[in-house]
Structures are given as structure tokens and as C-alpha cells.
Amino acid sequence: MMRDTIILRVVVKLLLPVILIFALYVQFHGDYGPGGGFQAGVAAAAAVILYGLVFGVSAARKVVPQGILLALIPLGVLIFAGTGILSLLLGANYLDYSPLGSYPKAGQHLGILIVEVGVFVTVSSTMLAIFYAFGGRAEDALVSEEENE
């Protein structure tokens, strides 16, 4: 925790929205160019992680509670897999998005977006969960050390 570095705190606060927006850009641009849910997820998680590094994991936990995180991980997988199932139900092969839209191309656009959302959710929440697991331990240890002193 870097309570005393005011510069960092301010810069981080400024950076956070930028990082998040960049994450969203990467997320939705993945359709056309380099990018996609995986990278976007990591970027989004990085934002929260940065926040946690500077303001403490407990602060980050208030922003994104652990419980929600643990639910989000499987949820992302479900979105991904569910889309595939949906295309099955609509009579195409698994993960063939063509029937999702009014015409194949639209369907494919929509499909890939949904799938990438699923990936985004899972990846970002997994990254965060890992950070909480490790970062949280260090902080807990620190707290108990301080108490001992």
C-alpha cells in the first residue's frame, strides 16, 4: 500500500477511466482488428488491480466484491458456451453464429460480440480473483504484523 505517494494516487485516479475505456475499445474492436475479449479482460482487470495496488486490496474489494467475482467467472463461461448452444438450438453447428441475426453476416457479428463478452467477463474476473488471492494474503499478513507491533 502506498498511502503516502499522493502523486501516484492522483495519477492512478486519472488513468483508471482511460484504461477502462481502452479495454472496451479493445473489446469491441476485436471484431475487426487485433484485440478481443481476452486482451480486453486483462486490461480491465489491470485497471482494478492498479487501483488495488495503490489504495489497498480491501479498497479494491469494495469496488468489485469477491463474491460477485466468483460468480462472474463461471458466468462468462456460460455466456460463451450458451451462445454455442443457442446456435445449436437454431439449427446450425456449434458456435456457428449465422442464424443469430437476420442475415448470416449480422448473426456472425452479433455472435462474436456475445462470445467475446463472455471471454471478457471470465478473463477479467479470473485475473482479479488471482490478484485478490495473492495480494489479499500479503495485506492480511501486513495487518496482522502491524497488530503484533
Binding site: 466468483l70 460468480a71 467467472i73 463461471p74 458466468l75 463461461v77 456460460l78 458456451a81 450458451g82 454455442g84 448452444i85 445449436l88 453447428n93 456449434y94 458456435l95
Partner: peptide
């Protein structure tokens, strides 16, 4: 497809409901 997807979805459901 189902061969692989069914356990995958089930895994996600297990983690979701806990």
C-alpha cells in the same frame, strides 16, 4: 460438440451455484 460442451457448461454451473 455436446460431448465437450456439456461438461463445460456443467462446470460453470457448479462454480456459479456453489
Amino acid at each position: 460438440a455436446l460431448q465437450v460442451v456439456i461438461p463445460l457448461i456443467a462446470a460453470a454451473l457448479c462454480a456459479l451455484f456453489r
